[in-house]
Write a protein that binds this DNA or RNA. Structure first.
Length: 765
DNA sequence: AGCTGTGGCAGGGAGG
DNA sequence: CCTCCCTGCCAC
């Protein structure tokens, strides 16, 4: 056994802190030890030969004891349960979480196609209308299990022919027999697997999903804080990898932001692999369909697993290749963040060179992206340009890297990944074979995933090599580039409408008549940027409705309208409001003032005469905090009472963190306090509607007020009112376009304006 | 154990 | 009334 400790020439800036680790390498000596201890990746024994591991299993405990003896006051020691790691360690804080691999990587030489992938989807029954099926309620249960695999197999286990325990046993039988490497599902982490496990517990069936049983992780419940949060109960299915296409879809959309929902059916349509005869069933009609058209439900479930496989075909390959670059196995690589991956790669080099690792520095608030709106109203035509990979490009051209990272791994990695990505993209273009093309595309996407998080790492408070001053320099440079671009566009006769971080929407100079001329103009703009900063034309639009910063609508040359921004699209706006906003924007973009008035009038009448359904005026919100946390915060005066929580307290009593509830406002007048006048939407009765008409009419007017800036006050009052006894006429009403006046340099408070221009970073004197 | 960042808009309640 | 604070959601 060799034990490496930080050497005196280590690079940690604070000498008092260091991180010992041990490293033992020689895989062959591991043979003869119990499989359970050293087999983790069970895609077939042949892949284990490349695994580095401890010389002897007992060495690990020897090392732990050694460290404990010396550093017992500082180290919180935990034994890693995996042996596919040659180095581990144990320290008070972050490093311990990283599995460090020194040499050869898992899955080396394997292709994505080599994996045997298995898809799984369950349909469940709910005895109560419009509530999710609950695995802890005896009346609720699994009614169908659809399975398929990447080798053409597909089957539906049917609750009509089999009891629930029989279905479960059959499922485990199939999995054991097929013995796949990967189990895939849409939202499988949050729904299918936990549901299956709970039912297994209920029936006393062993959940034999893995090659060696299933391992559970007690949920600590602390993970619900973040957006991506989930209540993962499954730590691992030994021997198999779990791929959740729902998670992959979110990650995919994080950088592209094109998806309106993360539903499987929506994704299948978005990516264009939904078939014409696909069966669609409204989620809240599943139980009804089971009672009345069970065959239809079976067909639906089968379509689900098919689409899951196709979605996975598209989204999961990059993670397979990431597992070849990082010390994370396939399933983990598809689940953890990219910052973790980058850091593990850096640490790997430090381990290899036996240089110690610094601890994270406290982070300071840093400058962010530059966002601004210069014009509001309807403008066109519009060009959308953006700087490609703005922050990574700045880091490379300006040579901005963490100061504590002395080996230069960070910059070398970013450079090499960028180079290799470009190369993969080039090869992809010339590749003849479609499967080769697909592989290269996956490889270049996997590089992109890493490249995009180098900047984020700088400001990440728990990054071992973080450097928020460097992060601030990057964003400042980004702001500088954008401002430069804006002024050049202005000088050339363009009219900048809206800017955000790395992109600009502008009206090109009127002298440009053709698409070609626009492209040449963009090339000219690109030429004004420094070497290494690439500007591209992202899109062309017939017109744009500019509302506020980060809030706008685009009308494409194909007639399609896209809305952006929380004030126009947010799910926290009632459905009737979102629909109404879209109608209004469509009308404004087409300069159809009558349509605006009609939309207002119709909605006004629908609300007044209770013609809307609860789904139209309900709000659906996530209960992020548990009943206890909410109660405590309210009692402590840290937060106000709010309608969704109060309604849930009254009607449900309790809930799980992260559960969503729909509620609406009741009562007679619009001035009441919301949390005292609300009900869960389940209780709404179309025969005796009790929604607060006055309140929702007020909401209609509030929402209408968004369009105030586009009209003169008199015109606005005419359009958005019901007072048209003598008929409404759009005559003489036009849509306003305004330059946004900003009160810079007002001089009212010189201290404040000076501060605004100052770095937000402060350094110790 | 597992967790990238900042900036902007909006609604609701409490308190001046 | 208005302002402040908190929370949620969204753009990049």
């Amino acid at each position: 056994m060799r034990l490496y400790l930080r050497s005196d020439d280590g690079i940690a800036s604070r000498d008092a802190e260091f991180f010992p680790f041990f490293h033992i390498a020689d895989p062959t000596l591991l043979e003869g030890y119990p499989k359970k201890l050293w087999l983790k990746e069970l895609s077939g024994d042949k892949y284990y030969r490349s695994l580095a591991a401890f010389t002897r299993w007992s060495d690990m405990w020897e090392a732990v004891r050694f460290i404990l003896d010396r550093y017992t006051d500082r180290l919180k020691v935990s034994a890693a349960s995996y042996l596919d790691v040659p180095a581990l360690l144990l320290r008070p804080d972050p490093v311990s979480q990283y599995l460090v691999q020194s040499g050869v990587t898992l899955f080396n030489g394997m292709q994505f196609e080599d994996l045997h992938r298995f898809q799984l989807d369950i349909e469940t029954y709910s005895g109560r209308t419009s509530r999710f099926s609950d695995p802890d309620r005896p009346e609720d249960r699994i009614i169908l299990i659809a399975v398929s695999d990447s080798r053409g197999y597909a089957e539906v286990l049917d609750g009509r022919a089999l009891s629930e325990p029989e279905m479960l046993s059959r499922l485990f039988g199939i999995i054991t027999e097929k013995d796949p490497d990967v189990i895939e599902g849409h939202n499988i982490y949050n729904f299918d697997l936990p549901y299956i496990l709970r039912r297994c517990r209920l029936h006393g069936v062993e959940p034999m999903l893995g090659r060696d049983g299933i391992r559970l992780k007690p949920s600590d419940g602390r993970q619900m804080r973040t957006e991506r949060a989930m209540e993962i109960q499954i730590q691992d299915i030994p021997g198999r990898h779990i791929i959740d296409t729902w998670l992959l879809l979110q990650t995919y959309d994080h950088s592209r932001r094109k998806l309106e929902s993360y539903g499987l059916k929506y994704a299948a349509q978005h990516f264009g692999f939904a078939t014409d005869n696909r069966v669609y069933i409204n989620p809240d009609r599943i139980s009804w369909t089971w009672d009345h058209e069970p065959d239809k439900l079976a067909a639906y479930a089968l379509d689900d697993v098919t689409e899951t496989r196709l979605l996975s075909d598209l989204l999961s390959p990059p993670y397979f290749y990431l597992s070849q670059m990082t010390p994370f196995n396939y399933g983990t690589a598809a689940r953890n963040g990219s910052v973790t991956k980058i850091e593990s790669m850096i640490i790997r080099e430090y381990v290899r060179q036996r240089v110690s690792i610094p601890s994270p520095e406290p982070t300071h608030p840093t400058t962010g992206g530059y966002a601004d709106v210069f014009q509001t109203g309807v403008l066109g035509p519009i060009l959308d340009i953006d700087v490609e990979s703005l922050y990574p490009s700045i880091m490379l051209t300006e040579v901005i890297f963490p100061h504590s990272e002395t080996l230069g791994v960070f910059s070398a990695m970013l450079e090499s990944l960028t180079k290799r990505r470009l190369q993969a993209k080039r090869e992809m273009k010339t590749a003849k074979d479609t499967s080769q093309k697909a592989k290269l595309d996956a490889v270049q996407s996997s590089f992109k995933i890493l490249i995009n998080s180098f900047y984020g790492y700088l400001g990440y408070s728990r990054g071992l090599f973080n450097d928020s001053i460097a992060a601030d320099r990057v964003t400042r440079k980004g702001q500088e580039l954008l401002r430069g671009l804006i002024s050049v566009i202005g000088e050339e006769g363009g009219n900048v409408v809206e800017v955000d971080t790395d992109g600009v929407f502008f009206v090109p100079p009127p002298r440009l008549r053709t698409e070609k001329a626009e492209a040449r103009f963009v090339e000219k703009l690109a030429a004004t940027l420094p070497e290494g900063i690439v500007l591209t034309l992202n899109g062309r639009y017939r017109s744009m409705l500019s509302y506020k910063a980060k809030n706008y609508a685009l009308l494409g040359y194909d007639g399609r309208i896209t809305l952006k921004g929380s004030s126009l699209t947010s799910r926290s706006i009632e459905r009737f409001g979102r629909r109404y906003i879209r109608q209004c924007i469509e009308a404004i973009l087409h300069a159809d003032v009558s349509a605006l008035h009609d939309a207002y009038l119709k909605l006004y009448r629908d609300i007044s005469s209770n013609r809307l359904e609860s789904g139209d005026f309900s709000k659906t919100e996530t209960l992020r905090d548990s009943p206890e946390e909410y109660g405590a915060d309210v009692a402590a005066g840290k937060r106000n009472r709010s309608a969704p929580y109060e309604a849930a307290l009254r009607e449900l009593g309790s809930w799980r963190r992260g559960e969503k509830v729909s509620y609406y406002i009741t009562g007679k007048d619009a001035s009441g306090v919301g949390f005292q006048n609300c009900r869960l939407s389940d209780g709404w009765d179309p025969v005796a509607p009790d929604e607060n008409v006055q309140f929702y009419l007020k909401r209609l007017d509030e929402i209408s007020r968004k369009f105030e800036p586009f009209f003169t006050p008199a015109d606005f009052r005419k359009i958005f009112s019901t007072e048209d006894l003598f008929g409404f006429s759009p005559e003489g009403i036009s849509i306003r376009t305004d330059s946004v006046v900003r009160d810079e340099e007002e001089g009212d408070d010189s201290e404040e304006s000076r501060m605004a221009g100052e770095p937000r970073i402060w350094l110790d004197a």
